[in-house]
Write a protein that binds this DNA or RNA. Structure first.
Length: 281
DNA sequence: ATGTCTTTCGAGGAAAGA
């Protein structure tokens, strides 16, 4: 059966992690990849290596911090949007949107927000509000959409090894969680949680106190599916072997597979005669 | 409070962000 694999990976410095990335692409062969925390300027994005691995890419870099990219196997993603609308003074490179393999892919790197309270937390919540507003339009646009990235939100206490030492952290604040809930309430499906409702799933293990070795992780990298994509979800998972490598990022690639064509062009036009009524799979 | 890693600046090691 044809299927489409879409992944999100906070790479924590693409120059320091170039070989980790190429090894992962080679082994897992995702069709579409969202990368966050490039920590590199546009000119330092290793596009030649990525092309040699069989991927086209678009990227939005920034010196030292942030930076996002979308990779597409076999062709270039068709860029739709660079930067989140709603604040012309926001200089952070945290958002890219493109069409690839018949799906609209939003790649996001939501602000961390620590320390909390403070201006960084205010920025996080303001950014989240802008994203919620933009996502509402995406949900209704009639195309299949995936919102993939590092949300810097632990949705519930089931998404962390032990919330006790993190109660003051921006990733667990009620305000952060409430924003995530409000986003889901638009109708999006949290793919990993939908596929595995009761499993402990982590995507991030910080570098402190041997958290990886003890599997003391957090689930903060999410893939949200629009209404017409949710029934196409086949499987979801985390490539934990990447986190176990030497010089690994503190995140692991997180992925879904969807029923349907993996090859082909960018977003296809909807058939003209198609009614807007929801069809069941 | 701590812990570790990557970045910049600039030439060794410190500071900041996560």
């Amino acid at each position: 059966m044809d299927s489409l694999k879409i992944a999100t990976f906070n790479i924590n410095g693409i120059r320091a992690r170039r070989t980790n990335l190429l090894e992962w692409l080679e082994r897992e062969q995702p069709d579409v990849v969202c990368l966050q925390e490039l920590k590199a300027q546009d000119a330092d994005f290793p596009i030649d290596d990525i092309r040699a691995a069989g991927y086209g890419a678009i990227w939005h870099g920034q010196k030292s911090w942030n930076g996002v990219a979308i990779l597409s196997k076999g062709d270039d993603p068709l860029e739709i949007r660079r930067g989140l609308p709603g604040d012309p003074d926001d200089t952070h490179s945290r958002y890219l949107e493109a069409a690839a393999h018949g799906v609209i892919v939003a790649c996001l790197y939501l602000p961390n927000g620590n320390p909390q309270p403070g201006p960084k937390f205010e920025y996080k919540l303001a950014w989240f509000e802008r994203f919620i507003k933009h996502a509402a339009g995406l949900f209704d646009n009639g195309h299949p959409v995936v919102l993939a990235g590092d949300y810097n939100v632990v949705p519930t206490d089931e998404d962390i090894y032990n919330p006790r030492s993190w109660t003051k952290d921006a990733l667990l604040q009620p305000e952060s969680r409430e924003c995530y809930e409000r986003l889901l309430a638009q109708g999006w499906t949290d793919a990993l949680r939908a596929k595995y409702p009761d499993a402990r799933i982590y995507t991030f293990w910080d570098y402190f106190r041997q958290h990886w070795q003890k599997n003391s992780g957090l689930r903060i990298d999410h893939l949200l599916l629009s209404a017409d994509l949710a029934p196409r979800l086949i499987d979801a998972g985390v490539d934990r072997w990447v986190r176990d490598q030497e010089h690994a990022s503190d995140h692991a690639p997180t992925w879904i597979t969807l029923k349907g064509e993996a090859s082909g062009k960018a977003v296809q036009e909807k058939p003209a005669k198609r009614s807007k009524a929801k069809t069941t799979q």
